[in-house]
Each structure stands twice: as C-alpha cells, then as structure tokens.
Design a protein around this nucleic acid. Structure first.
Length: 953
RNA sequence: GCGGGAGUUACCGAGUGGACAAAGGUGGCAGACUCAAGAUCUGCUCCCGAAGGGGUUCGCAGGUUCGAAUCCUGCCUCCCGCACCA
C-alpha cells in the first residue's frame, strides 16, 4: 500500500485548525453545547490511561459540532493541594528518588542537556506546575483535541482565588460552612497533617484512622488505668487487665482525673485532647498484682503482666476477656502454667457452634503461647464470627439478646454517657512518613467543614440527580446513594497551594472543595483577563452568575464599563449550564457529588448541570498502569509510537464506557492493520468517479442500503454515547460489507461505490479519527464535488472548509431497502447450503440443480407459510392441515418450524435467474433452476427461502 | 463488612427468552500469492456425519417455561469503591 505519513497529517491539520481558530467558541448561535472534562493535575506527565477520558470527551465535542451545536470544550489546569508542594520541597531538599523520577518525567519532553536545569528549577512549586501545564497542553493539541484554549487558567491564579472566595461566601451564607473536631493522620516531626503521598508505602498500603474506645478502670480515687479496645461490648466479660512490665507508663491529668497510659499513648493523647497534662512516670511492673474496679459492676479485678501488650498500640493497657479474645485466653493459660493462677473466663456472647470461642479456636489452631503469630488470625476469625452471628447473653444486662452487629455502638454510647468510656484514635498500622517521622493520629480542634447534612440540601441534590442524564445509567442510582451518604467534609487545610479561606486566612481551601463549580469560570475566563483582579469581588460574581445587583452601580464600584459587565454576563448566560461533564467513575463519590451539590446550593435551576458520562479506566496488557510497575506510556509518546488516530480508534472500539480498556500491543497491531486498510480504501477512491444512479445494480443498491442503515444506527448510537458500537459498525462491519461487495463485483467497481458514500462515511468517522478524515476530505475536495452527497443543492464550499465543521450526513432513507438486503441474504444462505453439502458429501459437482418453493408445483408452501406465519407454534400444523389436507403438509410445516425462517416475500426463482451467472462462477459448474429433472426426489424438500438442492457428481 | 460489577467456545469480547454452536477480533491449522519472510486473500477452528443433519456447551446446582447463555433461588470465584486524597 502507498506509504502514508500519519505524523505529517496530524501536524498539518492540528496546525490548520489552530490557525483557523475553528474551535474557539463564540457565544451567539442558537444551539449550544458546553462540555467539560476535569482539568488535569499538573504534578507530572499524563499517560495513555488519562488520555482515554479526554479523548472520549473530544469525540463527543466533535460529534456535537457535526450535529450543529455551537460547542464549547475548554480546558484548565489543577495546581491546588499538597502534592505539588511536597514534590517541590523534596526537590529543594535534593531527595534522590524524587529528583530521579522528575528527571525521567522531564526527559519525555526535553533534550538530555536541559533536563538537569529544568528539574533544578522544580524547587519552586510554581515551576513544576507551569512546566507540566505547558507540556500537557501541548500533549492535548497533539492528540487533536478540539479545545478552546483562550479560556485556560490554573487554580492558583488570582482570578481563580477570587472566584473560589466567592463560592465559599455563598456556601457560608447558606450556613453549611462550620467548624469542629476532626481526626487526621499527622506527623510530629513535620508538625503537619500527612496524606497518602507523604506516608511510606502509603499508596500501596493505606493508613486509615481507627476509633478505639477507652475504658476507665479505677485504681484509686480519680486515678484510672485506661484500657483501649475495639470491642467495648465485651466489657461485661472482663476478668483482669494486662500491662507490659518493662514498658513505661505515665500519669496524665485530664480534667479532674488522672489517667494512666503508656508513654507513647500519652504523647498521642496530647495531640488528640486539649486538656491533657503529663505528670510522673511509672514502670509497668509497679501495677502487677494491683486491683482495679471494672466500671460496670465495680468488681475488683487484678492487673497482670502480658508480653503481647504493645505500649505503642492503643493505651498500652488492655482489658482481658478470656472467653472471647484468643490473646487473653492464651496469656492466662501461660500464667496458669507458670504461676498456677486460675481465672475463670466469663462468657457473654452466645454463638452457635462455640462454647468458649477463644479457647476453642486456639485449640483448633494448636496455638500454645502468646508469642504465636497466628493469634492475630485467630482474633480476626472470632471477631468476624461473633460480630455477625453472636448474641449478647444475660450477663449483659439490658443489652442481652441482641446481636453484636446491631448493638456495638449502643454499648459504646452507653458507656460514654456514663462517663466510663472515651475515644482514642489509632492508625490502622504502624507507619512512618517518607522522611521517617512517626505517623500518629491527631485531632484538629477547629477544622473547617462543609456540612452536607441539611435536608434542604440533600433534597436539592436528589432532585438534581433525578433530572439528569447519566451514562452508563447505573451510576444514577449510585449517585443518589452517594448524596445520602455524604455528611461532613473538611474543606480547608493548613498546608498546600490554593485559595486562602476567606473567614480565617491561615487556612487554605482544600483542592477538591475548590474544583466544584469552576466550569462556570470557563464561560468568562477569557473576558476577565482584561479586568483588574481587585474588581472581581463578591458583588461582581453575584451579578454575573446570579443576576444580583445592578450593572450601573456595579460599574461605578468596580470601574468596569457597563457594557463590559453586560457582555460578561451574557457570555455566562449563553453557555451555562454545563450540558455534559465527562470523567471517570472514581470521581463519583468525591468530585462529582461536590460538583452536583455545590451547583444545587448556589445556582438556580436553569443553571444546573444536565448530564454526566463516565468511562472506565485503562490497563495495559491486563495490568494496572503505575509508575512503580514501570508500565506507563506517556500521552506525549502516542503520536510517535502508534499514531494519534489509531490510538483514538482503539479507545473508541476496544471497550464501551462501562468497561476497562486493555491496551494490548497485539490488539493494537491488529487494529493498525485494519485502520491502514481503511485509509487505503479511501485513498483508492479519491481519483475515481462515483457510480451514477442509473448505473446502480442490485449489488450497488445492497451496499448503499447497508451503508445508510449502518450510518443511521451509528448516529443514533453516537447520540446515546455508545461510541464503541459506532466504531465497530462504521469500521469493522462496513469494511466487511465492502469486502463482500468486491468479491461479488470487482475491485474497480468497489472503488467507485466507495466514492459514492465516502464523504458521508468520513464525516461520521471524523469525531473518532479526525486527522485522516480531514486529510481525505481535503484530498477529495481538491476535485469537484460528486457522489451522493453532491446530488442535491446543499454542501460545502470545498478546500477551505473543514470536515470538523460539516453537518452530519443526511440519512438517505430511500436507499435503505429491506428487499435488496433480504435477496442478498437469501443468496448467501443458498451458497452456504451448497458448500455445506459439497463438504459433507465430498462432491465436486458438475451440475447443480436448485428447486425453489415458488415453482408451480410447490407454490402451496408459500401460501401456507404466509397463512401460519403469525400463529403460535402449537397451532401451525392444525391450521396448515385445515388449508391443505395431505401428509406432506405436516412434513413441510415441521421442516419450516425447524428452520426458523422469518416470513419475507421474495421471488426466489426470479432472484436466482438473475444471479445465475454469479452462482455458476462461484461453483465453477453449470447450474439450473427448477428443472423437471429430479432423480433423488429433492423437490419436495424445498421450503420457502430455502431451496432444495441436487448435485450431480 | 457495606455498596457496585463480572464469570460465554484457546484468548479478548458481543449476546439478556426462540432465527444461538453463539457477532467481531486475536491466536492456531490448511491453501493462494512470493525465491523467502511479511502483508494480503480464501477456507477451517466444540464433537459426530458420504446431502444441507444430529449431539453436547455459556462459573456450579436446582427451578420456571413448549423453549434458557438470557428469567428465578442457592452456592462458588474474581474485580472495583468505601472519603478528606488528587
């Protein structure tokens, strides 16, 4: 095939689109469509997995343009938050791992000589963000995305800060911005909160916050040993306390009480409570043999030593429930062996299949010492079984008879209510920061929240979700659930890049809270550039977005001309709402729900989002892409490694939105062949005349019918976001049709018939593979218009007009012809039957006899076929016999039913006579239709649409 | 655990009551072309069959139905999300 330089084609059209500004969207035209895809986070290069979402967004944008919409598809960059700052800090400190990673990243884009210098500049967060924002926008241009770049911004710009301040003031007015206590993972060394990115192995082994219940065991007046537990309901079965003899404990003054906990716990407590004051230190062994009072009944129980106790987990004091906790049971067994100490377990949970669960599991697993690592597993097993199947027994007073799963929190609250218990937070595992600092849980006393719980807000949220389109549809129900589940969300942090919290300036607005309604800013971002930032105050945005206030007055206050203000407002009014937000499912429970809720709270009904579409992620060769696996392909490499249109086609065809795309080289190669063949097919029809209507034969009409049927289906499916089906239909299936056509006719005629449909075909494919379509389109229009598209008066003006701006092809219904297609199917199935017989009977026929059911003697079969076509199976024979009383009728109807043929009137003999020559060519022998000669009595087996066949060997 | 999703013929992947031994692709086999390889094209690719037929399949076990890959029940296996992190 002719060599095609795809890279050259890509660059040529990207350049032409750019200089012609065809994707710069101007307000005004009647039908508008405003589509957004979340702005990328600029901490590094994007890979082909990210590319899927943007690519699909672009396909939708391009399709909507073909549909005649004035499409706005903007883009911006996300800089807010801690990661970029953390990266800059690490690079400023020359941390090797990070520096190396960023050298890799930068070398995707720059010559080796400049890499070092660029990475050095990354000590400033701003430089990281600017560098990647610039590179990502180049990547996007190279992917052929039809973005209006005039409206871009980033989330740390003053304009954006002003906009976010306005948003928070609106929410504050609604009374949903509040302060409260909140536990976070925290590093003492760094003196700040730490997230997944800051924690060693935090991305693979997440650290979560676990709420322990602490229970007070009175040692003497107002002095308590404080035991921490995850199972407060077991308090009724406590028999003793455990401490570690060689650990250090301290007294802590909490209010009027003295609490005794491990040194480590006391330290954590200091970060979790305001009023904790550490007093003197005591050795663990001091407590051995002392008695404490358990809080529920005031029983005296002993304090005993246990080696399994870890001073750095919980409080370093553990209460013992030997009936239900394997650790406790084994530790007591150890003491019984060594000290002869006998303590009877107190059973408080009834559970089928167990008498004393802890004892039995230990025996079953042959655990014999508290040093046995499998105790953890045994604990898990018992915990799970008791949680779901266990019932508290009569020892548990008013809680008796209730399942653990249902009562756990109630016991906890009951204890808290009686001031016998408190809360202590612990990390789910021991963790350190990447810098080596210990990670603990701290409680912020004055965390700012957005409170999503007010019912007016939830109602608005549900109402919005209900009225929206979701694709895939299943996400609509899911979104309702998320709206219900949403409660409090911290919305500000002390660290990171972003907008200062307007009500307390030392806080920074957190990065998911600042990206909820920014789509509104796109509508006017390019117009704000000419204004002074100071003018963009609350009143300004109130006027533009909500129509509050008066233009004249505002003009005076802000020094902005009235006409400018009005122009800005009109632009917003025209583009908003956001007609479609396209992203990926992981955003549902965070970004998207905030997006919806904040819109619902702030904007009037007419400005609320209309639709959300979501595509699943992309994996590579069956595995998740990640930098640690080293299997990431940067988006920047797509053009050189694969070609942009091929990548786009793969994204479109490999999976529907709801499925994960698997990027497999083998499949890419297969698709490349197909794609090249498609381009070749187009190329071959450029320099050729289309067929004239008066030249059309049956096969031409068949191909046209197939084409327009597929085109019609494809437009409907594209509209419904079923892009995969469009791709399959308009590439794979249609190419098969054309291959078949060529086989039926000739290569030369195929070139001509393809020319007939080529313009329409290119248009429908152009959202998916825009570069080659644009190239072919312009190659065609170097020539005068012809083909079916040029038939009427309409069309396009030639070489200076882009395919990207064409209207969708009109469906030529007159070419969609059931009869023509049925005739061809009839012929295909006859050929299959003949081949089947040839194969099985191992005959190479010298002459083929075909007998149809519309031959005179068999015509009754067609009549009966018609008469019984709509009857249920069980009535068919009866009715047929009523019409024609003969045994052969029964045989015929049975055959007919078995063959499962749909009724369609077709003149079999006529079709076969017409196609006789083709059939003879296919089989290389003579063929006769409905001749008298019938040596094997085959005629009687003819049924409508399925002729009988006899072959002479 | 909670919530969601999935198990289809060597592989990927369509199919949600009859036209289904089940699209399409990949891989495999045979043939054509070629000095050869590649590309391309043709045929085959669950089993049996010397006349278009028959048999057994869609995670497992039951059930509904004239009829089930498709509907119902139970079970098994796998994947994803569960928040303060972009």
């Amino acid at each position: 095939m002719a060599y095609i330089n795809f890279k050259e084609i890509e660059e040529k059209w990207q350049h032409r689109w750019d200089e012609s500004k065809i994707f710069d969207a101007e307000a005004g035209k009647e039908k508008k469509f405003f589509l957004t895809v979340p702005y990328p986070y600029t901490s590094g290069p994007l890979h082909i997995g990210h590319g899927r979402t943007y690519t699909i967004g672009d396909m939708i944008a391009r399709f909507k343009r073909l549909q005649g919409y004035n499409v706005l598809f903007p883009m911006a960059f996300h800089v807010t938050g801690t990661p970029i700052l953390a990266i800059a800090d690490s690079i400023a400190k020359s941390e090797k791992e990070v520096v190396e990673r960023y050298k890799d990243y930068v070398s995707i884009y720059e010559d080796a000589a400049k890499v070092e210098e660029t990475v050095n500049s990354f000590g400033k967060a701003e430089n990281v963000a600017d560098f990647f924002a610039a590179r990502i926008s180049e990547d996007f241009k190279r992917m052929g995305y039809s973005i209006d770049w005039r409206r871009k911004f980033n989330t740390t710009e003053p304009v954006y800060n002003k906009f976010i301040e306005w948003q928070f003031k609106k929410l504050y007015e609604k009374g949903v911005i509040n302060k409260g206590k909140y536990p976070i993972t925290y590093s003492r060394e760094d003196g700040s909160a730490v997230g997944e990115d800051d924690i060693e192995e935090g991305d693979t082994n997440k650290v979560s916050i676990i709420e322990h219940t602490t229970i007070k065991f009175e040692l003497s007046n107002d002095t308590y040993l404080i035991a921490a537990t995850l199972r407060p309901e077991t308090i009724f079965g406590v028999t003793n306390l455990w401490i570690k003899t060689d650990a250090k404990y301290v007294k802590v003054k909490v209010g009027n009480e003295i609490w005794i906990v491990s040194v480590e716990a006391a330290e954590k407590l200091g970060y979790q409570r305001e009023e904790a004051e550490v007093l003197e230190e005591i050795k663990g062994r001091f407590f051995v043999g002392k008695k404490v009072k358990e809080p529920v009944e005031g029983r005296e129980i002993p304090v005993l030593p246990a080696s399994f106790v870890d001073a750095d987990v919980g409080t370093g004091v553990v209460y013992s429930v030997p009936a239900h906790a394997p650790y406790d049971y084994i530790a007591l067994e150890d003491l019984r062996m060594t000290e002869g100490l006998e303590i009877a377990p107190i059973k408080i949970i009834d559970i089928e299949g167990y008498e004393l669960p802890a004892k039995e599991i230990c025996e079953r697993m042959r655990i014999e010492s508290q040093e046995d690592m499998r105790l953890e597993e045994a604990t898990q097993v018992i915990y799970k079984v008791e949680f779901y199947r266990g019932v508290l027994n009569e020892k548990c007073r008013e809680f008796a008879g209730v399942e653990i799963a249902a009562i756990k929190d109630e016991v906890k609250n009951w204890l808290k209510g009686k001031n016998l218990a408190d809360v202590f937070y612990e990390t789910s595992r021991k963790a350190v920061t990447r810098g080596g600092g210990k990670v603990i849980v701290a409680v912020l006393q004055d965390q700012w929240f957005i409170d999503y719980t007010p019912s007016w807000w939830k109602d608005l949220g549900h109402k919005l979700v209900e009225g929206m389109t979701f694709y895939p549809e299943k996400y609509k129900a899911y979104m309702h659930d998320i709206v219900d589940w949403l409660a409090l969300r911290p919305c500000a942090r002390k660290r990171g890049l972003g907008t200062r919290f307007p009500f307390e300036k030392e806080w920074i607005i957190e990065s998911l809270s600042d990206s909820t309604i920014y789509m509104a800013l796109y509508t006017i971002a390019h117009l704000l550039r000419q204004l002074s930032v100071d003018a963009l105050d609350e009143k300004f945005f109130d006027y533009v977005f909500l129509g509050i206030g008066d233009a004249e007055e505002l003009a005076k206050d802000t020094n902005i001309g009235v006409n400018v203000l009005e122009r800005i407002k009109e632009e917003f009014e025209y583009w908003y709402p956001n007609d479609l937000r396209h992203t990926a499912p992981p955003h549902l429970s965070n970004h998207l729900v905030f997006f919806l809720m904040h819109h619902a709270a702030i904007f009037p009904e007419s400005k609320l989002p209309r639709a959300i579409t979501l595509n699943e992620l992309m994996i590579r060769e069956g595995r998740k892409m990640s930098k640690s696996k080293g299997n990431v392909i940067p988006l920047a490499k797509v053009s050189e490694l694969y070609g942009v249109d091929l990548y786009r086609l793969y994204c479109a065809i490999n999976a529907d939105f709801a499925s994960v795309v698997n990027w497999r080289e083998q499949d890419v190669d297969a698709l490349r062949k197909k794609f090249n063949a498609l381009v070749e097919l187009f190329e071959q029809s450029i320099e050729i005349d289309a067929l004239k209507e008066n030249e059309f034969t049956h096969t031409d009409r068949w191909l046209l019918s197939k084409f327009y049927r597929r085109l019609k289906e494809s437009i409907e499916r594209f509209e419904a976001f079923r892009i995969r089906e469009v791709g399959l239909n308009m590439v794979f299936n249609l190419m098969n049709d054309i291959k078949y056509y060529e086989h039926r006719e000739s290569q030369e005629r195929r070139r001509r018939i393809v020319r007939n449909v080529m313009e329409d075909w290119l248009i429908i494919l152009s959202p998916i593979i825009p570069h080659v379509c644009e190239e072919m389109w312009h190659k065609l229009h170097g020539k005068p218009l012809q083909g079916l598209r040029g038939r009427g008066a309409e069309p396009h003006s030639g070489a200076d007009s882009f395919i990207s701006l064409q209207p969708l092809p009109e469906i030529k219904e007159e070419f969609i012809d059931d009869r023509v297609e049925r005739e061809e199917e009839y012929l295909v199935s006859l050929i299959e039957d003949i081949k089947e017989i040839m194969k099985i009977a191992r005959i190479k026929p010298s002459k083929i006899y075909v007998y149809t059911a519309d031959a005179d003697a068999e015509k009754w079969k067609w009549e009966i076929f018609k008469a019984i076509k709509d009857l249920p199976d069980k009535d068919k024979i009866k009715e047929a016999m009523r019409l024609r009383k003969d045994k052969s009728t029964v045989d015929f109807v049975k055959q007919l039913m078995k063959s499962n043929l749909g009724y369609f009137e077709l003149r079999e003999e006529e079709v076969l006579e017409r196609e006789k020559q083709y059939l003879m060519n296919e089989f290389g022998c003579e063929m006769v239709i409905n001749e008298e000669y019938d040596p094997k009595g085959k005629k009687k087996f003819a049924i409508p649409l399925k002729p009988a066949i006899y072959m002479a060997g």
